[in-house]
Amino acid sequence: MKADPIALLTSLGHAVTSRLDRLGLATRFAIAVFSVLGVVFVRFGLIIRELYFSGVRSLSIVIVSGLFVGMVLAVQGYEVLQRYGSTEALGVIVALSLVRELGPVVTALLFAGRASSAVTAEIGLMRATDQLAAMDMMAVDPLARVIAPRFLAAIFSLPLLAALFSAAGIVGAWIIGVKLIGIDDGAFWSQMQASVDVRIDIVNGVLKSVVFGVAVGLISVFEGYFAVPTAEGVSTATTRTVVTSSLAVLLLDLVLTVMMFRGLN
């Protein structure tokens, strides 16, 4: 069958406009969510439950992953550093990789898979079973009562989880490097301390995870809130949350890294 150029152009146009429509919807939704955030701060108790489900429940996966990633970094880093006879720099390499990049990024990816997908499914199901509509009819704004606390919980959880990931990773690297390989303990820590800057490296890393928290949190509540109210719609929305969040995190990481670390030195 010959391709019809008019039909091709039409489908391309449709693809573009439908995506722009969704982006516009997401923007309006984001503005609406931000406008009710104040209400949530007044009733902080609402966030506690969400912090439990998003944060506490993600603890084990984040700490275990961090430990393993740190150990792998130590093994790989040692191999390379050995060639240049500077194995004491292992602590520096591991700490900088974790604090600047891997901590915020991998934690955000894990969080998208572990917590955000659950948030999307929960909100999608609440929508499919009219729970959000019922709340609205009881004169309780679902945006303030359901959406905003889950969004804020992501923003609060991610920096803490990322810090735990990095800390666990550094401990993992210490176990491999110092305890098993036998790098000097003092050199491991002192070189690290001399090269890791609190403002440039640690604060920027935390800032990154806050931005990731905003992105991942917003995507998860958006996909849930606008999920097609069927079993298939909710599962599609959940998948989309994970895919979109992951892409958003990696793209934002590139932008933030260029903004934060370019031109340093």
Binding site: T129, D130, Q131, A133, A134, M135, M138, A139
Partner: peptide
């Protein structure tokens, strides 16, 4: 809406 009650089709209880 505080003066309107609504019963949804399947109850819409908070699960």
């Amino acid at each position: 809406r505080r003066r309107i009650g609504m019963l949804f089709q399947f109850g819409a209880l908070f699960t």
